[in-house]
Each structure stands twice: as structure tokens, then as C-alpha cells.
Design a protein around this nucleic acid. Structure first.
Lengths: 233, 233
DNA sequence: TTCGATGTTTGGTATGACCATAATTGTTAG
DNA sequence: CTAACAATTATGGTCATACCAAACATCGAA
């Protein structure tokens, strides 16, 4: 009765996705099946599909059946990303976002210094070693760099943090990809990672935080020097 | 050429929104105008509109022209919220999200203790006073409670944090609204706020963090006691 | 001037059709 | 019998048209 059948169907399918009725990874029923099932026209079914796709509950390639995505923290971040990427046209917003990341990681390293388990330390050491091995391969170094920081998020034991880390990486990637790289710079970053690791190992939160701030501030200097074009009227 | 004219139009309108060509708060041109402007059928235009709506670039009521929304950090959070609300059906995820909030605020109060300006302190004191005045009015107390915490985010000087705070409040509201309230409980919370304020005032980050953790952990105990139904097969 | 009846605009929905490509089936050659 | 190929079907992308009801604009009557 309420003049929007599309929303009802949209909500229903949303529910059927989260409760597992529609299985993740499997394709959605054909549009023509759905219109029969819901007694609606194809117009409204297609509207539902586009809405769910934009919301992140479906992933649809041009000529294929939409694939069901049970939403997790990662897809939530991805949904926000559609807007975020526009915000990051302003370097001020890039800086703000980066500072959010810095704040998170500061607390994470403090907590790691206080409460990291043996296995956590072990994995972090492994990530550090991988990072060192990649000093001469900038592409590989970037990957291991990300992995090292990611480990800080994993240690928290909170499943939301790895997703948050992933979001930071994706959103800030455009800026970082422009960053000049070199084995010397890589070595500097590796040493910074090592300092963070050592501080965690010695169970010194203040030192760990200080090392992390130093590292990330230095990175920011490097990155921010690559964009000087800004025009906010 | 590429079998998806909708995406092109979608991207174009997105750009026209962010660069101000389409003014925020004003209604989008009529569907029939857009189909003429883009030389596309109404089907495509409507698909574009629903997609942009789900993305947060438009806000559309049933029988009204869609309103243009220049996306900011707040709408980004709102876009993610569509997914988040489903995740929070699991109390584990609620806990994880809450812990993310706790981590943020721990760092924020530490920073406030170290670097809060006089005006920051003044506004925080005002928020604390408002909170105290509202002890006997649970609805008003909730509002001032939120406002007090929000001030911690504002002090950071980072425009992203107030939006993040807003997101925490919205996402966790369903749980919080079920929380039993009383003047006694309000007073307890006020005293916790006061302790945090005092710690910031005395420039003691460790004490401030400790006071905040105590406060938020206590709140969690209270809230979590209100949901004991969970079934994750 | 104000208020209300009336006609126009516009969004919501439904049909039906056509095209291009993916998926399926059937056929044939090796 | 199998594998490569051709024909058929299923399905998503787009279009044109039509109708309804609610919002909007217009204008005339009180």
C-alpha cells in the first residue's frame, strides 16, 4: 500500500541474505524468476538489484547474474569508500583520515606492548623479517610494509580492526602509490618498523607509541610532499 | 560501447555533485529532463538515481524529487551503516564495535590530557555541567552524555572524529536505548565523566585513560546485560 | 487577499519488446 | 566415444509507452 514496493522487496532480500537463505557466493535468481516470486514487474526487481548492489549486498558484473555477498565489516568499509574517495580530493581530508589511522595505531601498539601474546610477537617478528628481506624490491616492500602494520591490528583480537586497516590502506593507496620509493627509503622504514617491534618486545607502551608516531609522521612528510595542488574555493 | 551506460551517467552526476555543479540541498532535475539531457531512457535514469541514493549522493523521499547531498564524512558513515546494522545482530560484533570506540576514546582522552587548549577545557566543563544538571531527567541525561563524549572527539581538531563519534552513537543506539536508566545510574555516569574531566585537567594521560576505560567498561556491563539472545549457527 | 478547485508535472509501477552475450544443448567431425 | 563446433535458449541491458496517484502550479471565486 505504501507507495514503494521496491523497498519491501529490497528489505526482504536483504534479510534472506543475512540469514543465509540466499547463499553467499551463489548467484541471485534470475530477474524474471524474482518478478514471478514477488509478483512485481521487472522494473521494480531491477531497481531492487541496483540498490542492493550499491549497498554492497550484491556484486554484479555487466552481463552476469549478481553474486550474493553476505556483508561483513570489510564490505561496510567498501560501501563508505564510494563517498570517501571524493572527500580525499581535499588534502585536508587526506590528512585528517591519516591522523585517524595514526591515532588507532598509536593505541594498538600501546596495547600490543602491554598485552601481546607470544604468538603475536612471533607473527610480528615474521612480518618484520619479511619486510627486511624485501628492502631491495620496492613493490614487495610495500606489500610487507602493509602486512607488518596489519599485524598490529590483528593483535588486538578484534575482528573489526583488520577491516579498518584494509580500509585505511585502500583509501590512502592513491596517495601512497605516488610516493617515491628506493632501497634507502625502504631501509629507513624497515628500521622504523624494527624500532616499533623492539619497543613492543620490551613491553614499553610509551616508547612503542613514540616510535610509531615518528615513523608515521615521517611517512606523512614524504607523502605530502607529492601533492601541492589544492583548490578549495 | 561498453554495455553500461548507467555507470557513465552515474559517475558524471557524482562528479557534478562534488564539484558543486549540482547544488547541495537542491532537488535533482526531473527524471524526464535527465533522460533528455543524457539521451538515455527513463529506465537508465532511474537506475542511476537509485544507485546514487544508495551511495548517499541523493536523499529521496517517495514522491519527491531527490535532494542532492554533497557527501561528507557523516554521509560516508551513513552509507556504511546500511551494512553495519545487520552485522550488529551478532552481539560479538556489537562488542567489537564498542571496543573500537573504546580504543578511539582512550587515545582521545590521552591526547586531551596532554594538549587540550583552554577553550577545549572550557567547553568540556560546560558539557560536564550540562550533564550534571540533567541527572534527574534520563532523556536529557542521555543527550548530554553523548554531548560530553562528543566533545572529546571535537578536541582532536580533526574533522573526521566528530563524524566517527556520530557513527558510533547511531550504530550503538539500538542497544543503548534498551539500557535501563535511573537517576542513580545517571549520577554514577556523571561522576565517571567528572573523573575523566579531572584527569584531563590535571594533565595526566594515564589517569584519564584509566578513568575512561573504567567508565566505558562499566557501561558495557550494563548494556550487555540487556541482551542474552544469540544464535549463530 | 485568501482559499480552494483544477489542470499539469512528476515519481512509482507495469508491459512488452529487442539486442547482445552467457549458458546450454545439440551436432558433427575426428 | 570424445572433443570441437554450431544452434538454441536464458538472461541481463536498454528502450518506448502507458497509467496512476501524489505533489505542484495556476487561477478563479469568495
Amino acid at each position: 500500500m505504501d507507495t514503494r514496493t521496491a523497498e519491501h522487496i529490497c528489505d526482504d532480500i536483504e534479510i534472506r541474505i543475512v540469514n543465509g537463505d540466499l547463499v553467499e557466493g551463489k548467484p541471485l535468481p534470475a530477474e524474471r524468476s524474482l518478478m514471478e516470486a514477488y509478483g512485481a514487474s521487472r522494473t521494480v526487481i531491477r531497481e531492487v538489484i541496483t540498490a542492493l548492489t550499491a549497498k554492497g549486498f550484491l556484486r554484479s558484473r555487466p552481463r552476469f547474474r549478481p553474486i550474493v555477498c553476505r556483508p561483513d565489516a570489510s564490505t561496510a568499509m567498501h560501501a563508505a569508500g564510494g563517498v570517501i574517495k571524493h572527500l580525499l580530493a581535499s588534502s585536508q581530508n587526506v590528512h585528517d583520515l591519516y591522523q585517524v589511522r595514526v591515532l588507532c595505531e598509536r593505541m594498538l601498539v600501546r596495547d600490543a606492548a602491554v598485552g601481546a601474546k607470544r604468538e603475536d610477537i612471533q607473527r610480528l617478528r615474521q612480518a618484520l623479517d619479511d619486510n627486511e628481506q624485501a628492502i631491495d624490491d620496492s613493490a614487495q616492500f610495500y606489500a610487507t610494509d602493509v602486512a607488518f602494520h596489519r599485524q598490529l591490528y590483528v593483535i588486538s583480537g578484534n575482528s573489526a580492526f583488520p577491516a579498518i586497516h584494509q580500509a585505511f590502506v585502500e583509501w590512502l593507496a592513491p596517495q601512497w602509490s605516488q610516493m617515491p620509493r628506493s632501497p634507502e627509503r625502504n631501509r629507513t622504514n624497515f628500521l622504523a618498523h624494527q624500532a616499533i617491534f623492539e619497543a613492543i618486545l620490551s613491553r614499553d607502551p610509551d616508547l612503542a607509541e613514540k616510535a610509531l608516531i615518528s615513523h608515521l609522521d615521517s611517512s606523512w612528510q614524504f607523502v605530502s610532499s607529492t601533492f601541492f595542488a589544492e583548490e578549495t574555493p
